[in-house]
Design a protein around this nucleic acid. Structure first.
Lengths: 155, 155
DNA sequence: ATGATATTGATTTTGATTATCATTATAATT
DNA sequence: AATTATAATGATAATCAAAATCAATATCAT
């Protein structure tokens, strides 16, 4: 179960670094895991605020950073959806890339094993030791096309 | 020749928008095209400053923006090389993706036709109309590995 | 309960990029 | 060459997400 693996990930990180289990930290982590979507810091802040109005913005940022360091989650900086960073849970999920609708902002998680192999081929070809990659596909989703947005002229 | 196509691109954009040929603008464009590398605004600023010390930072930013709008160049926002945007010339060059060494910052331009096809397959599969994509491969280059940087533990 | 240390929330600061604005430059016209 | 309308410049201030600061508070082993 994703939720347990996610919690285990941050738990062991906190333990290894002698960090404490505070109430706000726990609430932020739980809210983020429960939301299970590509949130911005601000969106997460508002979600957490509903449960605990005393929570500050800084703590949300700090906790997101912590979660990223622990490997629980990851920053997403898409090209065409404002300037702010989104975050997604990694633990308990398969590796995937992102397909983003430039009109409505919908994010679809995609995967192609062959595409991964091609990428490794490129690493080898140029004699790089592979660490990570980022692939984002930008386009217009079916719904937005039906609504006449993002159409090709003359299409 | 890349240089001519690049110049033609920005020229026609300026003409179409009734923009003027100023000395600073011309110097910035020329310096950028001549440098022919993945520069930051600051790097370009310092390069231009050598030729014309009166040039201001704002004009460099403005001209870079103009160049991007005209399609002459493009913003690159890599994950692991600071927070600042780099820019690269597009005109007169083939489409390519980027392979980045996370240690020395070297950027290698790569291309794989099959990989492009895979990407289009994903667009189709999810019923998206394709607009663009971004693929970045992060790893350690040969030189950095030889210098003992970016080695796998126990490698 | 105590003490050492980590965490919090409010606030300020940072750093890259944009916007503002008075002055100057451009380019077409007279 | 002077005129004119418009665009561009450079200096500076504003913006905005994210990070740093700091006094007050919470955590947790003892």
């Amino acid at each position: 179960m994703a939720k347990n693996e996610a919690h285990a990930s941050i738990e062991s990180y906190l333990a290894a670094k002698n960090l404490k289990h505070s109430r706000p930290r726990q609430e932020i982590i739980d809210t983020f895991i429960k939301a299970d979507s590509h949130l911005t810091a601000e969106e997460l802040y508002h979600l957490v605020k509903k449960k605990n109005p005393k929570i500050g913005f800084a703590t949300v940022y700090r906790t997101l950073k912590l979660m990223c360091e622990s490997g629980l989650c990851k920053e997403l900086k898409f090209e065409k959806s404002g300037d702010c960073t989104r975050y997604e849970i990694l633990k308990g999920r398969e590796h995937h890339d992102h397909l983003i609708c430039t009109h409505c902002g919908t994010v679809v998680e995609v995967f192609d094993a062959e595409l991964e192999r091609m990428q490794n081929r490129l690493f080898k070809l140029h004699d790089f030791y592979p660490q990570s990659h980022r692939l984002e596909l930008y386009g217009t989703c079916k719904t937005c096309r039906k609504r006449g947005r993002g159409k090709v002229s003359g299409g």
